[in-house]
Write a protein that binds this DNA or RNA. Structure first.
Lengths: 241, 241
DNA sequence: CGAAGACTTGATGCCGATCAACAGGGGTGG
DNA sequence: CCACCCCTGTTGATCGGCATCAAGTCTTCG
């Protein structure tokens, strides 16, 4: 039986039946490879699909009129990418590949059929979308009310959480300092200074583009992050059927 | 037949059948009145419901450890409020009333039954949640990449869009300057200065707590806002069945 | 080996925070 | 009815965090 990144991720939320898993696998039947740096969709251009990320790392961002960029988030295997497209004719965000990647484009009609056939999965997708929205709200609060150092620490913590689902205590964040800046609302120059400061304080070590987290607890504290982990309640989902 | 704020709002997206409308009306059967200033739910405290806002104006916010507040958004009649609760045991955000208000608490199980019984409405709710997420992303980009003046102008434009669904070209934004500051990531003092500047430039007029928008086009330009209005695509929704 | 991109570091400037003081207004209790 | 107080708004002075500008180094890759 084929595997499904999406089913694996959702299956960590609630146990999935074989038929549910099969329905999710069917969603990612198609495949579109992306080179590093490639643009999957561009804001304001017409779109009809969203995507399941099967391999690699993507980011989504908005551009302001004056040419500056705000990165909205980073995406990892199993994520629904461009799900915000759902209601729109024109893409609400740009999506680009940070590494080589593979996505499965999904037609909206296919989602409509899935919702009609499998209400339990429909409810799960709705709940998953709310988890994503809470993460977005946390980042919004960081931009509005936290210092540069806290925001940079926050990005490192976020990436660690997602990357080490695959293991690895140190990790090569495949990000330039400019990208960290665009995610945190800072300039690349200031990101550099914040990273140095975090290194001087012993929270991280830097060795040529790579970052190693030395003191994760202190980093989480520096980021001023509340942990929402684990405490989910999905008991209300309708029965599979 | 009773009326439903939620059905009215969703009905502006797609035509709803009488049975669908009835199902939505059933959701808001309960009623909980809120005094101005009352707190509907507090972050980190247990919650089991979300809410349909029937009357009044609410806001949701997060508090940082150091006591500063980041307002995530304002809510108007017909909105699903606290929908982000869906997946969590503990409230991910605080919700408070800016005016006298009435909400209808909705149990999650009731939503689960609605999803199972009416896939078309389930898909519509999912699409509506994505519209809300795009609005959140726009605010995030404003916090990260726009000037204080642009952010304040943005709040005024947002509120106008929602308030004048009920008419009224000038409006009493029921907000203090401190609340505008907490929504824009600024201090109340600086909000005051930005409002004065907007008034000097002839974009708004202020008369004792009230704000009148004199030049909406210029305000939208000052806010640097892209218009996503109207261009929705909901043709993929499954048939009402 | 050359060039382009990413990183580093210093000098300077500005936007918005902070601190401080006061004015107006609406509600409350005497 | 008045005195009082708290909340909100207003305005000035000063401070600091982060941007901007500029130059130079390192890395990577063709």
């Amino acid at each position: 039986m084929t595997t499904s990144c999406l089913a694996d991720r959702l299956g960590r939320l609630i146990p999935l039946g074989d038929d549910e898993r099969a329905a999710l696998i069917a969603l990612e039947a198609r495949d579109r490879p992306l080179r590093r740096g490639a643009t999957l969709q561009r804001e304001h251009e017409p779109v009809a699909d969203f995507y399941v990320l099967k391999r690699g790392m993507l980011m989504s961002y908005l551009l302001t009129g004056e040419g500056s960029r705000q990165i909205l988030g980073f995406h990892f295997p199993g994520d629904l990418v461009g799900f915000a497209n759902l209601a729109y004719r024109a893409a609400p965000e740009t999506i680009a590949a940070l590494t080589e990647a593979n996505v499965a484009p999904v037609e909206r009609q296919a989602l409509g059929r899935l919702i009609a056939a499998r209400p339990r999965l429909a409810a799960l997708l709705l709940a998953d979308a709310q988890v994503a929205q809470v993460a977005l709200a946390d980042r919004l609060a960081a931009l509005g009310r936290r210092s540069a150092k806290a925001r940079v620490a926050g990005v490192l913590v976020d990436l660690r959480d997602r990357l080490r689902e695959g293991g690895a205590s140190d990790f090569a964040l495949g990000l330039t300092q400019e990208e960290i800046g665009d995610a945190t609302g800072l300039t690349a120059v200031h990101v550099n200074r914040m990273l140095r400061q975090l290194a001087q304080e012993g929270l991280i070590a830097r060795e040529g583009g790579r970052v190693r987290l030395l003191d994760e607890a202190a980093l989480v504290r520096a980021a001023g992050r509340v942990d929402r982990g684990g405490a989910l309640d999905l008991g209300w989902l309708p029965p599979a059927g």
